[in-house]
Amino acid sequence: MVPLVALAAAFSVGALLIRSQGVNPAYAYESLFSYALLDGSGLTATLQKVVPLVLCGLAVAIPLRLGLFNIGGQGQFMVGAIGAAAAAYALRSAPGIVTIIVTMVVGVLAGSMWASIAGLLKAARGVHEVISTIMLNSVAGGLIDWMLNGPLADEQVPYPASHAVPGSAQLPPIGVVPIGLPVAVTLAVATAWLLRRTTIGFRFETVGRNRYAASYAGISIRTTTVVAMGIAGGCAGLSGGIELVGVEPYRYQDGIAASLGFDGITIALLARGNPIGTIPAALLVAAMRAGAPHLALDTGLRPEIVDMVLAITLLFVSLPLVVKLIFRKHAAKGSQLASSWGA
Protein backbone atom coordinates (compact mmCIF):
# COMPACT_ATOMS: atom_id res chain seq x y z
CA MET A 1 0.00 0.00 0.00
CA VAL A 2 2.63 2.51 1.04
CA PRO A 3 4.63 2.22 -2.21
CA LEU A 4 1.49 2.81 -4.26
CA VAL A 5 0.52 5.89 -2.29
CA ALA A 6 4.09 7.13 -2.46
CA LEU A 7 4.07 6.55 -6.19
CA ALA A 8 0.85 8.50 -6.66
CA ALA A 9 2.23 11.33 -4.58
CA ALA A 10 5.53 11.40 -6.46
CA PHE A 11 3.81 11.42 -9.83
CA SER A 12 1.61 14.27 -8.65
CA VAL A 13 4.63 16.30 -7.62
CA GLY A 14 6.27 15.31 -10.91
CA ALA A 15 3.19 16.54 -12.76
CA LEU A 16 3.54 19.92 -11.10
CA LEU A 17 7.20 20.06 -12.11
CA ILE A 18 6.36 19.11 -15.69
CA ARG A 19 3.62 21.69 -15.87
CA SER A 20 5.95 24.35 -14.57
CA GLN A 21 8.06 23.62 -17.66
CA GLY A 22 5.07 24.38 -19.86
CA VAL A 23 4.33 20.80 -20.85
CA ASN A 24 1.06 18.98 -20.30
CA PRO A 25 1.84 16.33 -17.63
CA ALA A 26 -0.68 13.83 -18.99
CA TYR A 27 0.91 14.09 -22.42
CA ALA A 28 4.41 13.77 -20.93
CA TYR A 29 3.57 10.66 -18.92
CA GLU A 30 1.80 9.15 -21.89
CA SER A 31 4.79 9.83 -24.12
CA LEU A 32 7.16 8.38 -21.52
CA PHE A 33 5.30 5.16 -20.92
CA SER A 34 3.95 4.55 -24.39
CA TYR A 35 7.50 4.52 -25.74
CA ALA A 36 8.87 2.47 -22.84
CA LEU A 37 6.14 -0.18 -22.90
CA LEU A 38 4.40 -0.15 -26.28
CA ASP A 39 7.16 0.60 -28.79
CA GLY A 40 9.22 -2.42 -29.88
CA SER A 41 12.69 -1.05 -29.30
CA GLY A 42 11.50 0.90 -26.27
CA LEU A 43 10.14 -2.26 -24.68
CA THR A 44 13.38 -4.13 -25.34
CA ALA A 45 15.31 -1.28 -23.73
CA THR A 46 12.97 -1.39 -20.74
CA LEU A 47 13.21 -5.14 -20.29
CA GLN A 48 16.99 -5.05 -20.71
CA LYS A 49 17.11 -2.65 -17.80
CA VAL A 50 14.68 -4.71 -15.72
CA VAL A 51 17.09 -7.66 -15.55
CA PRO A 52 20.02 -5.99 -13.75
CA LEU A 53 17.66 -3.90 -11.65
CA VAL A 54 15.83 -6.96 -10.29
CA LEU A 55 19.08 -8.79 -9.58
CA CYS A 56 20.78 -5.78 -8.00
CA GLY A 57 17.57 -5.16 -6.07
CA LEU A 58 17.79 -8.70 -4.67
CA ALA A 59 21.42 -8.05 -3.76
CA VAL A 60 20.18 -5.33 -1.44
CA ALA A 61 16.91 -6.97 -0.34
CA ILE A 62 18.48 -10.22 0.90
CA PRO A 63 20.95 -8.74 3.40
CA LEU A 64 18.22 -6.31 4.45
CA ARG A 65 16.51 -9.29 6.10
CA LEU A 66 19.39 -9.43 8.52
CA GLY A 67 19.42 -5.70 8.93
CA LEU A 68 22.53 -5.43 6.74
CA PHE A 69 22.61 -2.58 4.26
CA ASN A 70 24.54 -3.67 1.18
CA ILE A 71 25.65 -0.55 -0.67
CA GLY A 72 28.14 -2.61 -2.64
CA GLY A 73 25.87 -3.87 -5.40
CA GLN A 74 27.72 -1.61 -7.81
CA GLY A 75 31.11 -3.12 -7.07
CA GLN A 76 29.72 -6.66 -6.99
CA PHE A 77 28.07 -6.09 -10.36
CA MET A 78 31.30 -4.72 -11.85
CA VAL A 79 33.44 -7.54 -10.47
CA GLY A 80 30.92 -10.08 -11.79
CA ALA A 81 31.00 -8.48 -15.23
CA ILE A 82 34.80 -8.27 -15.41
CA GLY A 83 35.08 -11.85 -14.16
CA ALA A 84 32.68 -12.90 -16.88
CA ALA A 85 34.69 -10.92 -19.44
CA ALA A 86 37.89 -12.66 -18.37
CA ALA A 87 36.21 -16.08 -18.53
CA ALA A 88 34.71 -15.40 -21.94
CA TYR A 89 38.11 -14.33 -23.26
CA ALA A 90 39.86 -17.35 -21.80
CA LEU A 91 37.27 -19.65 -23.42
CA ARG A 92 37.11 -17.77 -26.72
CA SER A 93 37.67 -20.91 -28.77
CA ALA A 94 35.34 -23.16 -26.71
CA PRO A 95 31.80 -23.97 -27.88
CA GLY A 96 29.33 -21.15 -27.19
CA ILE A 97 27.21 -23.01 -24.67
CA VAL A 98 30.24 -23.94 -22.54
CA THR A 99 31.45 -20.36 -22.61
CA ILE A 100 28.05 -19.07 -21.54
CA ILE A 101 27.71 -21.45 -18.61
CA VAL A 102 31.25 -20.95 -17.34
CA THR A 103 30.92 -17.19 -17.82
CA MET A 104 27.78 -17.08 -15.70
CA VAL A 105 29.31 -19.23 -12.97
CA VAL A 106 32.42 -17.07 -12.85
CA GLY A 107 30.24 -13.95 -12.70
CA VAL A 108 28.30 -15.33 -9.74
CA LEU A 109 31.42 -16.48 -7.91
CA ALA A 110 33.26 -13.20 -8.50
CA GLY A 111 30.36 -11.10 -7.22
CA SER A 112 29.80 -13.48 -4.34
CA MET A 113 33.45 -13.39 -3.34
CA TRP A 114 33.51 -9.61 -3.49
CA ALA A 115 30.49 -9.28 -1.21
CA SER A 116 31.81 -11.98 1.11
CA ILE A 117 34.81 -9.79 1.86
CA ALA A 118 32.43 -7.30 3.45
CA GLY A 119 30.55 -10.19 5.10
CA LEU A 120 33.75 -11.62 6.58
CA LEU A 121 34.91 -8.22 7.79
CA LYS A 122 31.56 -7.74 9.49
CA ALA A 123 31.57 -11.23 11.00
CA ALA A 124 35.17 -11.25 12.13
CA ARG A 125 35.84 -7.69 13.14
CA GLY A 126 32.44 -6.01 13.24
CA VAL A 127 33.35 -3.65 10.39
CA HIS A 128 30.19 -1.86 9.37
CA GLU A 129 28.99 -3.21 6.03
CA VAL A 130 27.96 0.23 4.75
CA ILE A 131 31.55 1.41 5.06
CA SER A 132 33.22 -1.74 3.76
CA THR A 133 30.89 -2.30 0.78
CA ILE A 134 31.12 1.30 -0.33
CA MET A 135 34.91 1.20 -0.10
CA LEU A 136 35.00 -2.09 -1.98
CA ASN A 137 33.12 -0.34 -4.81
CA SER A 138 36.09 1.97 -5.25
CA VAL A 139 38.53 -0.91 -5.00
CA ALA A 140 36.58 -2.72 -7.74
CA GLY A 141 36.71 0.40 -9.90
CA GLY A 142 40.49 0.65 -9.56
CA LEU A 143 41.01 -3.04 -10.16
CA ILE A 144 38.91 -2.96 -13.31
CA ASP A 145 40.67 0.12 -14.65
CA TRP A 146 43.94 -1.72 -14.29
CA MET A 147 42.56 -4.83 -15.98
CA LEU A 148 41.10 -2.88 -18.90
CA ASN A 149 44.43 -1.16 -19.46
CA GLY A 150 46.49 -4.27 -18.84
CA PRO A 151 45.74 -7.99 -18.89
CA LEU A 152 42.24 -7.80 -20.37
CA ALA A 153 42.73 -4.89 -22.76
CA ASP A 154 41.61 -5.29 -26.35
CA GLU A 155 44.39 -3.55 -28.27
CA GLN A 156 42.16 -3.12 -31.32
CA VAL A 157 39.91 -0.70 -29.47
CA PRO A 158 41.20 2.84 -29.02
CA TYR A 159 39.86 3.14 -25.47
CA PRO A 160 39.97 0.97 -22.36
CA ALA A 161 37.76 -2.04 -23.05
CA SER A 162 37.88 -5.80 -22.68
CA HIS A 163 37.77 -8.21 -25.60
CA ALA A 164 34.26 -8.75 -26.93
CA VAL A 165 32.49 -11.97 -25.97
CA PRO A 166 32.92 -14.43 -28.89
CA GLY A 167 29.97 -14.35 -31.28
CA SER A 168 28.88 -17.89 -30.44
CA ALA A 169 28.42 -16.93 -26.78
CA GLN A 170 26.51 -13.69 -27.34
CA LEU A 171 22.86 -13.87 -26.34
CA PRO A 172 20.90 -11.08 -28.01
CA PRO A 173 17.25 -10.63 -27.01
CA ILE A 174 14.75 -13.09 -28.48
CA GLY A 175 12.16 -10.81 -30.04
CA VAL A 176 11.78 -8.12 -27.40
CA VAL A 177 12.62 -10.40 -24.47
CA PRO A 178 16.20 -10.28 -23.22
CA ILE A 179 17.58 -13.65 -22.26
CA GLY A 180 18.17 -12.57 -18.68
CA LEU A 181 14.52 -11.76 -17.97
CA PRO A 182 13.31 -15.28 -17.17
CA VAL A 183 16.45 -15.78 -15.08
CA ALA A 184 15.82 -12.63 -13.07
CA VAL A 185 12.13 -13.37 -12.52
CA THR A 186 12.87 -16.96 -11.50
CA LEU A 187 15.54 -15.80 -9.07
CA ALA A 188 13.20 -13.26 -7.51
CA VAL A 189 10.60 -15.96 -6.93
CA ALA A 190 13.26 -18.39 -5.70
CA THR A 191 14.55 -15.79 -3.26
CA ALA A 192 11.07 -15.26 -1.87
CA TRP A 193 10.80 -19.01 -1.40
CA LEU A 194 14.26 -19.17 0.16
CA LEU A 195 13.40 -16.46 2.64
CA ARG A 196 9.96 -17.77 3.58
CA ARG A 197 10.13 -21.51 3.33
CA THR A 198 13.65 -22.66 4.12
CA THR A 199 15.78 -22.83 7.25
CA ILE A 200 18.24 -20.40 5.71
CA GLY A 201 15.43 -17.89 5.34
CA PHE A 202 14.33 -18.57 8.89
CA ARG A 203 17.87 -17.93 10.13
CA PHE A 204 18.05 -14.65 8.19
CA GLU A 205 14.73 -13.55 9.60
CA THR A 206 15.63 -14.52 13.16
CA VAL A 207 19.00 -12.77 13.06
CA GLY A 208 17.32 -9.72 11.58
CA ARG A 209 14.64 -9.59 14.27
CA ASN A 210 16.88 -10.14 17.23
CA ARG A 211 20.40 -11.36 16.89
CA TYR A 212 20.83 -12.04 20.58
CA ALA A 213 17.84 -14.34 20.59
CA ALA A 214 19.08 -15.92 17.37
CA SER A 215 22.49 -16.50 18.85
CA TYR A 216 20.90 -17.94 22.00
CA ALA A 217 18.90 -20.30 19.81
CA GLY A 218 22.12 -21.60 18.32
CA ILE A 219 22.19 -19.71 15.04
CA SER A 220 25.67 -18.57 14.10
CA ILE A 221 25.47 -14.85 13.43
CA ARG A 222 28.85 -14.91 11.67
CA THR A 223 28.01 -17.70 9.24
CA THR A 224 24.61 -16.22 8.51
CA THR A 225 26.13 -12.81 7.79
CA VAL A 226 28.70 -14.23 5.37
CA VAL A 227 26.13 -16.47 3.66
CA ALA A 228 23.66 -13.61 3.20
CA MET A 229 26.32 -11.33 1.73
CA GLY A 230 27.58 -14.16 -0.45
CA ILE A 231 24.14 -14.82 -1.92
CA ALA A 232 23.57 -11.09 -2.41
CA GLY A 233 26.89 -10.66 -4.18
CA GLY A 234 26.12 -13.69 -6.32
CA CYS A 235 22.92 -12.02 -7.56
CA ALA A 236 24.76 -8.82 -8.43
CA GLY A 237 27.63 -10.75 -10.01
CA LEU A 238 25.24 -12.82 -12.12
CA SER A 239 23.64 -9.61 -13.24
CA GLY A 240 27.05 -8.39 -14.39
CA GLY A 241 27.64 -11.64 -16.28
CA ILE A 242 24.25 -11.49 -18.00
CA GLU A 243 24.87 -7.89 -18.94
CA LEU A 244 28.13 -8.86 -20.60
CA VAL A 245 26.83 -11.71 -22.78
CA GLY A 246 23.32 -10.36 -23.34
CA VAL A 247 23.67 -6.67 -24.06
CA GLU A 248 25.58 -4.65 -26.62
CA PRO A 249 28.50 -3.95 -26.88
CA TYR A 250 29.20 -7.44 -25.41
CA ARG A 251 32.38 -6.23 -23.77
CA TYR A 252 33.40 -4.47 -20.60
CA GLN A 253 33.87 -0.78 -21.22
CA ASP A 254 33.09 2.52 -19.61
CA GLY A 255 29.38 3.01 -18.96
CA ILE A 256 28.50 -0.68 -18.70
CA ALA A 257 27.76 -0.58 -15.02
CA ALA A 258 26.22 2.91 -15.15
CA SER A 259 24.59 3.20 -11.71
CA LEU A 260 22.84 -0.17 -11.79
CA GLY A 261 24.22 -1.33 -8.46
CA PHE A 262 23.08 1.82 -6.72
CA ASP A 263 19.72 1.65 -8.46
CA GLY A 264 19.37 -1.72 -6.73
CA ILE A 265 19.04 0.18 -3.46
CA THR A 266 16.16 2.18 -4.90
CA ILE A 267 14.52 -1.02 -6.09
CA ALA A 268 14.90 -2.82 -2.77
CA LEU A 269 13.50 0.12 -0.83
CA LEU A 270 10.63 0.61 -3.29
CA ALA A 271 9.85 -3.09 -2.88
CA ARG A 272 10.22 -2.65 0.89
CA GLY A 273 12.67 -5.52 0.96
CA ASN A 274 10.22 -7.97 -0.63
CA PRO A 275 11.95 -10.10 -3.32
CA ILE A 276 8.84 -10.44 -5.50
CA GLY A 277 8.27 -6.71 -5.13
CA THR A 278 11.56 -6.05 -6.88
CA ILE A 279 9.94 -7.07 -10.18
CA PRO A 280 7.30 -4.31 -10.39
CA ALA A 281 9.73 -1.86 -8.81
CA ALA A 282 12.36 -2.67 -11.43
CA LEU A 283 9.80 -2.47 -14.21
CA LEU A 284 8.81 1.00 -13.10
CA VAL A 285 12.35 2.32 -12.82
CA ALA A 286 13.40 0.62 -16.07
CA ALA A 287 10.43 1.99 -17.99
CA MET A 288 11.08 5.49 -16.74
CA ARG A 289 14.79 5.30 -17.56
CA ALA A 290 14.16 3.79 -20.99
CA GLY A 291 11.48 6.32 -21.81
CA ALA A 292 13.39 9.36 -20.60
CA PRO A 293 15.34 10.04 -23.83
CA HIS A 294 12.15 9.71 -25.84
CA LEU A 295 10.35 12.05 -23.46
CA ALA A 296 13.14 14.58 -23.87
CA LEU A 297 12.99 14.25 -27.64
CA ASP A 298 9.23 14.50 -27.75
CA THR A 299 8.55 17.32 -25.32
CA GLY A 300 11.86 19.11 -24.83
CA LEU A 301 11.83 18.34 -21.12
CA ARG A 302 15.19 17.54 -19.54
CA PRO A 303 15.47 13.76 -19.09
CA GLU A 304 16.49 14.34 -15.47
CA ILE A 305 12.82 14.92 -14.68
CA VAL A 306 12.53 11.14 -14.52
CA ASP A 307 15.24 10.86 -11.89
CA MET A 308 13.53 13.57 -9.88
CA VAL A 309 10.23 11.69 -9.90
CA LEU A 310 12.04 8.50 -8.86
CA ALA A 311 13.85 10.32 -6.08
CA ILE A 312 10.61 11.80 -4.81
CA THR A 313 9.02 8.34 -4.90
CA LEU A 314 11.85 6.99 -2.79
CA LEU A 315 11.52 9.87 -0.40
CA PHE A 316 7.83 9.18 0.08
CA VAL A 317 8.42 5.44 0.43
CA SER A 318 10.83 6.03 3.27
CA LEU A 319 8.67 8.70 4.90
CA PRO A 320 6.71 6.25 7.08
CA LEU A 321 10.01 5.04 8.51
CA VAL A 322 11.09 8.57 9.26
CA VAL A 323 7.73 9.33 10.79
CA LYS A 324 7.98 6.20 12.90
CA LEU A 325 11.46 7.09 14.04
CA ILE A 326 10.27 10.52 15.07
CA PHE A 327 7.04 9.54 16.77
CA ARG A 328 8.08 6.28 18.35
CA LYS A 329 11.42 6.27 19.97
CA HIS A 330 11.52 2.51 20.19
CA ALA A 331 10.84 1.88 16.53
CA ALA A 332 13.63 -0.63 16.08
CA LYS A 333 11.61 -3.68 17.04
CA GLY A 334 8.94 -2.97 14.45
CA SER A 335 10.59 -2.96 11.09
CA GLN A 336 13.77 -4.56 9.91
CA LEU A 337 14.10 -1.77 7.38
CA ALA A 338 14.28 0.78 10.15
CA SER A 339 16.97 -1.11 11.99
CA SER A 340 19.21 -1.11 8.94
CA TRP A 341 19.43 2.66 8.90
CA GLY A 342 20.49 2.96 12.48
CA ALA A 343 22.59 0.01 13.59
Binding site: T44, A45, E243, E248, Q253, A258, A290, P293, L297, P303
Partner: peptide, 16 residues
Protein backbone atom coordinates in the same frame (compact mmCIF):
# COMPACT_ATOMS: atom_id res chain seq x y z
CA UNK B 1 19.52 15.69 -29.38
CA UNK B 2 19.43 12.65 -27.10
CA UNK B 3 21.68 12.02 -24.11
CA UNK B 4 21.82 8.24 -23.60
CA UNK B 5 22.35 7.31 -19.97
CA UNK B 6 24.19 4.05 -20.50
CA UNK B 7 26.38 2.44 -23.15
CA UNK B 8 23.62 0.00 -24.06
CA UNK B 9 21.30 2.89 -24.95
CA UNK B 10 23.45 4.15 -27.84
CA UNK B 11 21.83 1.95 -30.47
CA UNK B 12 18.29 2.62 -29.23
CA UNK B 13 18.98 6.36 -29.20
CA UNK B 14 20.21 6.31 -32.79
CA UNK B 15 17.17 4.24 -33.72
CA UNK B 16 14.82 6.87 -32.33
Amino acid sequence: YIEPAEAKDYAASIKQ
